[in-house]
């Protein structure tokens, strides 16, 4: 079982003439906390979108090997099928369901793990009731883990900013992923919140058996958290390695020159 949990080879994504990603290969091992960094507009979010099926890549291979399962390709799958196969994500610009409570937001994450259809929802046989009950309990448990249980019945939009970001993680967690993609989870957080996020991510890896890939501009966070860092610039991958390697890498320093991004 030495196959990487996520294996992306030669990924290229062009919009018209513009190559947002050019021949990017990244692989992530089970249990890793990996980071994807690079200046603004380098193609990091596009990379997430290609993996999660929001874009269909122009070229390249996207393969996953879920723990205990066979390798399968994700290319061309619709986003909901990607999620069903165990990859969950958060969004850079928070995309919560504003017409719903916090608990319901998490319950949406349970959606693909529930089986009751319309007829069952209308007639509510015991099996449906139990399943619904369990979804509520499970979702509440997730909120407790993430530390949001006090907001359970609040509308999602009314949460403080940092809590909204955490709720996005809770919602992603509810889909039972093995791989979690976090798109700038610390953006807009104050140092205290960032510290808590740092702990949360480590806790997720250790207690929930998750592999995590995050995009982040906060270099302090990235350097302290990550086992492995991938750097992209102008759609091309320019380096990868441990935090120490990356700090010393001249290409990376060049890419970031004039953009001391660790205050992002």
């Amino acid at each position: 079982m030495n196959k990487p949990i996520l294996n992306v080879k030669n990924l290229t994504m062009s919009f018209g003439g513009l190559k947002a990603l050019d021949d990017v290969s990244i692989s992530i091992e089970k249990g890793q906390i990996a980071a994807l960094i690079g200046p603004n507009g380098a193609g990091k979010t596009t990379f997430f979108n290609c993996i999660t099926g929001i874009y269909e890549p122009t070229k390249g291979v996207v393969e996953i090997t879920p723990p205990g399962k066979n390798t399968q390709s994700l290319r061309g799958l619709k986003p909901n099928y990607v999620t069903e196969r165990g990859i969950a994500r958060t969004f850079q610009n928070i995309r919560l369901f504003h017409g719903m409570t916090v608990l319901e937001n998490v319950m949406i994450g349970r959606h693909c793990r529930l089986s009751s259809g319309i007829i069952k929802a209308m007639l509510q046989p015991p099996s449906q009731k139990n399943e619904e009950q369990k979804a509520v309990t499970d979702s509440y448990e997730i909120l407790e883990k993430i530390g949001l249980e006090k907001y359970v019945n609040d509308m999602a939009v009314n949460l403080p900013y940092g809590a909204q970001r955490r709720l996005e993680i809770a919602r992603a967690l509810a889909t039972d992923p093995f791989l979690l993609l976090l798109d700038e989870p610390a953006a807009g957080m104050n140092p205290q919140e960032t510290k808590e996020l740092d702990d949360l991510i480590l806790w997720l890896r250790d207690n929930e058996n998750l592999t995590i890939l995050l995009i982040e501009h906060d270099m302090k966070l990235v350097m302290s958290l990550s086992d492995w860092i991938h750097v992209v610039d102008y759609g091309k991958k320019i380096a990868e390695g441990t935090p120490e390697d990356i700090k010393a890498n001249s290409d990376v320093i060049k890419a970031y020159l004039g953009d001391e991004s660790d205050d992002a």
């Binding site: 619709k78 986003p79 999620t83 969004f91 919560l96 319901e104 959606h111 259809g117």
Partner: peptide, 25 residues
């Protein structure tokens, strides 16, 4: 207040996030 009803509202609020939650749009 069922799975399908929540999916409708999620879809109304944000199609992309909704799909990312594993819902068939």
């Amino acid at each position: 207040n069922s799975k399908i009803g929540r999916a409708w509202i999620a879809l109304r609020d944000d199609e992309i996030a909704c799909q990312a939650m594993g819902i068939d749009k």
